[in-house]
Design a protein around this nucleic acid. Structure first.
Length: 624
RNA sequence: GGCCCCGUAGUGUAGCGGUUUAACACGCCACCCUGUCACGGUGGAGAUCGUCGGUUCGAAUCCGAUCGGGGUCGCCA
C-alpha cells in the first residue's frame, strides 16, 4: 500500500471548532470586527469587517459566493453584481486560499437557503467591499478537503497541511490538553521548572543526540533523553511538587509512536508513596478525558494490575481491557489427554495456556492457519484451536460437536473443561498454546490483539485505563549476559524484596509503574531509591562498583547525602496522550512539525550539511 | 542494520513487455450560468511514468543500483 494520508476516521465535525466559542468581538482590530465562525442570526443587520482565507468560491456568473475561513470557522459571503459591483468584480477574480478582507452586512438567509451543516449557516454576509490582501498559488495539497496526500508532501508543505480541519483540530486538542494539565497541576500546588537542554551524555538507555562544544575541544553535550536526574535534584532542592512539559530527545529508529524529539509531562513529588503518584495521574487523566473527550466512556478508579498478573491474564504489560478474552491456565485438563506437546511443555517448566474467542467457532480454516503463523512467529511451536459447536454452556459436549485437529487426543469432557477455564460457551473458539510462559504470553498477546482487531472487538468510544505495577526491578540481558534496570537505575525495590537483591535479582519487584490505556503505554514512573546504600546495592547488581558509581553518579549520590526526601514521579508521553484523545494512531498527526521515518524534515531540509568553518569551530572533522 | 510495500500531470489513483497519441477523479485555465454551499454546464492545458544503469527489436511495465516516503524486526520506556 502506498503510504498515503489516511482518511479521517472521526465523524466530520464541520469547520474548526473551539470548545467554548469566544465572545463577540474577541478579535476586534482594524481588519476584523468579528470572526467568521462566530456570526449567528442575532448579528443580522450588523455591519462587519471580516478577514481570512477563501475556502471555496462558487461563481454563478451573476452571484458569487465565497466561503471565508478564519481560525474560528466558515461563513458565506455573497457578492451581488447590482448592489456592490466592485466587490463582485474582485470576488470573481479570487481563488482558493487567497487572503481577503470583506466588509458587509450580516443578513439572515432567506427561507430554503439555510445551511444546517454550518454553525453560521443561518446567516451570510452581503459584501459591500472585498479586498485582496494576498494572492495564493494553487496549493499542492487541498486545504478545503480531507484528501489523501503523501507524507513527504504533507511535511514539505506542513503549513498548508495544518490549515486543514483535521490537523487544525488536532493541534487545538493538544493545546487544550496542555492547558488542562497546567490547570490541574496548578490547583494542586505544582511548580513548573525548566531544566537544561545541554547536559551530559549517559551511556545507559537510548542513544544520545550530541552537541559539540566549541569551548571544550573534543567534548560534547547531550540533549536530554528525559529530565530524570534534574527532576530528582529539584526534589532534593525542596521543590516538593515539580512538573515540566519537557522536550526529550532519543536518537533511535522511528515508529508511528516514536519521534526523535517528543514531549513528556515530567512530574516528581516528595514525601509520596506509589499510590499518591497513581492517584494524581488517575485524577489528571480522568479530568482531561472529561474535558476533551466527554463522549467517551471511562472507568474510574483505574484498575491497578501487578505486572505478574497482567502477564498471566493478558500476556502483556500493556493490556487492552476493552475486550475480555483473558488467558487461562489449561495445563491440568491438557495433561489428562494424549497430546504430547502439552506434556512436553509442562515437563520443560512451561504450561498450556489459552483464551476463548466469543462467537469464534465459525472461524475459517484459512484464518486459523494465519493465526497459527502469527503464533509461530511469536515463538510458539504451533496453535491448538478448538471450536465448540451449538449454543449454550459447554455441558454434555458430544464428540461431533467439537472441531479441532487435536480432538482425537482428548475426551470431549476434557475439551469442555479447557473451554470452561477460559469462560467459553458453545459457539466460541479456544486458542491454546503449549510453551514456556514467556513464549505463550508473547504468542497469546499477539493473537488476542489480532483477533480483537479483525473482529473489531475494541470499542473506540471507550477509554480503558489501567496501571501496571510491581515491574521486575531487573531484567536479564541475554546478549550481554548481565542484569539491566528494567525502568531506570534510580527505581526503588519493593521493601520486602530488598533481601533478595543479592540472591535472586530476577525476583525483586520494583516500585515502578506504567499508565496504560487501550493497550498503549502512556506513562512510566517509579518511586526512587533515595537512600545511597540501596542505590549502591542496585548498582552493584548492574555491575557498577562503588568507584564507577562515584565517577558517573557522584553528583546524585552527593545530593542524596544532603537530606533527600522519599520521592517518586512519573512521565506521561504528551504526544501519545494527545493522539489518544484525538483518536489518531500516529503521533505525527498531533505534532506541528514532525520528522519523517529517517528523522529528517522535508520543510527545512534538516539535517543539513554545514559550512567547514562552522565545523572547524567545534573541532569536528567529518569523515568523507 | 535486516526484511517488506510504495514512487505515473498540481493531488490521489489506473495501466504492469507491443492499438496508449499513457487513462480516470479532484484540482487548474477559459467561456456560460443570479441562491449556491463538494454549485452546475461546455471546452482546454497539464506527465520524457523518482533517478541512473542494464535486459529486449521494443520498457511506465522486467532486472540491478540509488534516492525519497511508509510498515515491521532489531533498537527504543
Amino acid at each position: 500500500m502506498a503510504t498515503a494520508y489516511q482518511p479521517d476516521p472521526r465523524p466530520s465535525g464541520g469547520p474548526v471548532r473551539h470548545s467554548a466559542p469566544p465572545p463577540d468581538g474577541w478579535g476586534v482590530d482594524v481588519l476584523k470586527s468579528h470572526r467568521c465562525g462566530e456570526l449567528r442570526s442575532r448579528h443580522a443587520g450588523e455591519r462587519v469587517r471580516l478577514a481570512g482565507w477563501v475556502h471555496r468560491r462558487r461563481d454563478h456568473g451573476g452571484l458569487v459566493f465565497l466561503d471565508l475561513r478564519d481560525e474560528s470557522g466558515l461563513v458565506q459571503i455573497v457578492c451581488h453584481p447590482e448592489s456592490a459591483p466592485e466587490a463582485h468584480a474582485v470576488a470573481s477574480t479570487v481563488r482558493a486560499e487567497w487572503v481577503v478582507a470583506v466588509e458587509g452586512e450580516v443578513q439572515a438567509r432567506r427561507e430554503g437557503t439555510v445551511n444546517e451543516a454550518l454553525p453560521t449557516g443561518s446567516v451570510e454576509v452581503a459584501a459591500s467591499e472585498v479586498r485582496v490582501l494576498a494572492e495564493a498559488a494553487t496549493p499542492p495539497i487541498a486545504v478545503n478537503q480531507e484528501a489523501a496526500a503523501e507524507e513527504a508532501t504533507r511535511l514539505r508543505y506542513r503549513y498548508l497541511d495544518l490549515r486543514r480541519e483535521r490537523m487544525a483540530q488536532n493541534l487545538r486538542m493538544r493545546h487544550r490538553v496542555v492547558q488542562g494539565i497546567r490547570r490541574y497541576l496548578e490547583e494542586r500546588g505544582f511548580v513548573e521548572v525548566e531544566t537544561p537542554m545541554l547536559s551530559a551524555a549517559t551511556p545507559e538507555g537510548a542513544r544520545d543526540y550530541l552537541v559539540p562544544s566549541r569551548i571544550h575541544p573534543g567534548r560534547f553535550y547531550a540533549l536530554p533523553q528525559s529530565p530524570q536526574q534534574w527532576k530528582q535534584l529539584l526534589v532534593v532542592a525542596g521543590f516538593e511538587r515539580y512538573y515540566q512539559i519537557a522536550r526529550c530527545f532519543r536518537d533511535e529508529d522511528l515508529r508511528a509512536d516514536r519521534q526523535p524529539e517528543f514531549t513528556q509531562l515530567d512530574v516528581e513529588m516528595a514525601f509520596v508513596e506509589r499510590d499518591d503518584v497513581l492517584d494524581l495521574v488517575e485524577g489528571l487523566y480522568a479530568h482531561l478525558a472529561r474535558e476533551v473527550n466527554p463522549e467517551r466512556r471511562l472507568q474510574a478508579p483505574f484498575p491497578r494490575i501487578p505486572y505478574a498478573e497482567a502477564m498471566e491474564r493478558f500476556g502483556s504489560d500493556k493490556p487492552d481491557l476493552r475486550y475480555g478474552m483473558e488467558i487461562a491456565d489449561l495445563s491440568r485438563p491438557a495433561l489428562s489427554g494424549e497430546l504430547g506437546i502439552f506434556r512436553q511443555a509442562v515437563a520443560d517448566g512451561g504450561r498450556g495456556r489459552g483464551f476463548a474467542v466469543p462467537g469464534g467457532a465459525d472461524t475459517a480454516r484459512r484464518e486459523l492457519d494465519r493465526l497459527t503463523g502469527l503464533a509461530r512467529e511469536a515463538g510458539a511451536g504451533g496453535l491448538v484451536p478448538v471450536a465448540y459447536g451449538g449454543s449454550g454452556p459447554l455441558e454434555g459436549l458430544a464428540p461431533e460437536e467439537v472441531r479441532s485437529p487435536v480432538a482425537r487426543f482428548f475426551e470431549p469432557e476434557v475439551l469442555a473443561e479447557m473451554g470452561r477455564l477460559c469462560g467459553a460457551r458453545r459457539g466460541d473458539l479456544l486458542l491454546a498454546v503449549a510453551a514456556p510462559d514467556d513464549v505463550s504470553s508473547r504468542a497469546l498477546d499477539v493473537l488476542r490483539r489480532e483477533v480483537a482487531s479483525t473482529r473489531a472487538l475494541a470499542d473506540e468510544d471507550e477509554l480503558a485505563f489501567c496501571f501496571v505495577t510491581d515491574f521486575p526491578l531487573f531484567e536479564w540481558d541475554a546478549r550481554e549476559e548481565r542484569w539491566q534496570a528494567s525502568h531506570h537505575l534510580f527505581t526503588a525495590p519493593v521493601e520486602e524484596d530488598v533481601p533478595l537483591l543479592e540472591s535472586q535479582p530476577g525476583a525483586v519487584r520494583s516500585l515502578a509503574y506504567d499508565l496504560v490505556c487501550n493497550g498503549q503505554e502512556l506513562a512510566s514512573g517509579s518511586i526512587r531509591a533515595h537512600r545511597p546504600e540501596v542505590l549502591l546495592a542496585v548498582m552493584g547488581i548492574l555491575g557498577i562498583d562503588e568507584a564507577q558509581a562515584r565517577e558517573r553518579f557522584g553528583h546524585m549520590l552527593d545530593a542524596f547525602g544532603y537530606g533527600a526526601p522519599p520521592h517518586g514521579g512519573i512521565a506521561p508521553g504528551l504526544d501519545r496522550t494527545v493522539a489518544l484523545f484525538a483518536r489518531e494512531r500516529d503521533i505525527r498527526e498531533v505534532i506541528a512539525f514532525p520528522k519523517t521515518k529517517t528523522a529528517s524534515d522535508p520543510l527545512t531540509g534538516a539535517p543539513s550539511s554545514v559550512d567547514p568553518a562552522q565545523l572547524a569551530e567545534v573541532h569536528i572533522d567529518v569523515r568523507p
